[in-house]
């Protein structure tokens, strides 16, 4: 009993450190890529949701909010089907890049985008809804078309909401688990993220390693949120 424990501590300490660093790197890359792409796609979507009078507003808003209520494994399951070689997304990717999306970093980014979307569109939509219509009219009366109005007035007016949305999207991507497990698997250096590495540790009863990762993630999230809220309302 004592011998087994000591042996495990040895295996956990040396290669596991490198393993965790690698997972942290993959996690950071994934969260950065996801956040960057969402920061381009989410603002126009949130603006449309906030401003449109179309009957499609409610269904579209519901669709973007799905990841908030659906178990990640359900989303992950459907995404896995879609990204497999036989699925529509996977087939397309296979035809273009010669590989399906499932169990790749690109597939993981796509899944994370869908899963973190409501965390980015949410704060943006509520901020955009509060846009002073008088300022938009003033900009229009000066001759500013809708697109430059959005880029030059709406986005700068809501830069705090943009930062909040980016932080939430980033932190949420760092913390996701279910969807990654379903569509990414556990490939070191490719799709093994911190939450998966943590799961591994727990499965192998390496609680010391698990503590390190879990504590690290907890501290990171707490710090990021604290700084964000302080910055939002100094």
């Amino acid at each position: 009993m004592r011998r087994r424990a000591s042996k495990q501590r040895v295996t956990a300490s040396v290669p596991a450190g490198a393993d965790v660093l690698e997972a942290a790197w993959v996690t950071a890359l994934l969260a950065l890529a996801t956040t960057a792409i969402l920061l381009v796609l989410a603002p126009p979507l949130a603006w449309w949701i906030a401003r449109t009078r179309s009957k499609w507003r409610a269904p579209v808003e519901a669709l973007t909010a799905l990841p908030l209520v659906l178990p990640p494994t359900v989303m992950g399951f459907y995404l896995l089907i879609a990204m497999a070689r036989s699925g529509p997304l996977g087939g397309l990717a296979d035809a273009i890049f010669g590989a399906p999306l499932a169990f790749t970093f690109a597939g993981l980014v796509l899944g994370s985008m869908i899963y973190s979307l409501p965390f980015v569109t949410g704060p943006l939509t509520s901020a955009f809804r509060g846009t002073d219509a008088q300022l938009l009219e003033a900009a229009a009366s000066l001759g500013t078309a809708p697109m430059p109005r959005f880029l030059r007035l709406v986005l700068p007016l809501h830069r705090k909401a943009l930062v909040a949305a980016a932080v939430l999207g980033f932190a949420h991507t760092v913390g996701e688990f279910g969807i990654v497990l379903m569509i990414g698997g556990n490939i070191p250096g490719e799709t093994r993220v911190l939450s998966i590495a943590l799961f591994d540790r727990v499965e192998t009863l390496d609680y010391a390693g698990a503590h390190a990762i879990a504590g690290g993630l907890l501290a990171f999230s707490l710090l990021v949120l604290t700084f964000t809220y302080r910055w939002l309302r100094p």
């Binding site: 008088q134 009219e137 003033a138 229009a140 000066l142 001759g143 078309a145 030059r152 007016l157």
Partner: peptide
């Protein structure tokens, strides 16, 4: 025809300055 395309410039009852820009940038916006 949308407001921005009409060659009309309006001074509203309220100043409606853009709060995130200083006076110079408000003017340059126009």
């Amino acid at each position: 025809m949308p407001a921005h395309a009409r060659s009309v410039s309006t001074v509203f009852q309220e100043p409606r300055l853009f709060p995130h820009l200083n006076a110079r940038r408000n003017l340059e916006f126009a």
